[in-house]
């Protein structure tokens, strides 16, 4: 019985402690880039929602696809209407966890691995990518670069424009989070 009480209290302590270590932002950044000899594509979104639970090492991202700004208006229209179909599937999201020990109370930079599921265009795929987390005076920032294949998410690119879009799209993620109350 004692053991149970001890264990329960440990769990409770752990959970309540977790509440204090949630970092969040509504102005995270995701950009994606494709470079071919025919065309450069650059789309950026500064309204990325991200949350990191430092105690459980969990994290989640959510972003409205319509918020991606392209240099060419027609590209943006094609991205929304023909490729990701943002009217049907407005969001892309990621949930997962990270590995690596991080001291959330002192300043420092940490290399971590993020592992989870990415949902885009109604397709969910596992994703494992390296990232860097930085703790600076109680604030948490993170960056990650990785590549995605549109075809993995059932985004079909007509053969006539296939040469204008890279097979692997480079994705850059950058977030600056504050402690959530």
């Amino acid at each position: 019985m004692k053991k149970i009480i001890a264990l329960t209290s440990i769990i409770i302590t752990f959970c309540t402690q977790g509440q204090a270590q949630i970092f969040m932002t509504r102005t995270g950044f995701i950009g994606f880039y494709s470079k071919t000899s025919l065309e450069d594509i650059k789309a950026e979104n500064n309204q990325v929602y991200a949350v990191i639970d430092g105690s459980k090492k969990n994290l989640a991202f959510s972003v409205l696809l319509k918020g991606f700004i392209f240099r060419k208006e027609l590209m943006q229209e094609h991205f929304n209407d023909n490729y990701v179909e943002s009217d049907k599937y407005p969001k892309a999201s990621f949930t997962g966890s990270y590995s690596g020990d991080i001291n959330l109370t002192s300043n420092g930079s940490y290399k971590i691995m993020v592992k989870g599921n990415l949902t885009l265009h109604n397709i969910t795929k596992p994703l494992e990518v390296p990232a860097t987390l930085e703790i600076n005076n109680g604030k948490l920032s993170g960056i990650s670069d990785f590549k995605l294949k549109p075809e993995d998410f059932n985004i079909t690119i007509p053969s006539i424009v296939r040469d204008k879009i890279e097979n692997d799209i480079t994705v850059h993620v950058k977030i600056d989070c504050n402690t959530s109350k």
């Binding site: 929602y49 949350v51 459980k56 969990n58 994290l59 989640a60 999201s93 949930t95 997962g96 966890s97």
Partner: peptide, 9 residues
């Protein structure tokens, strides 16, 4: 907790 993070977002 994992999915509630997404719900929170």
């Amino acid at each position: 907790q994992d999915s509630s993070l997404l719900k929170m977002l």
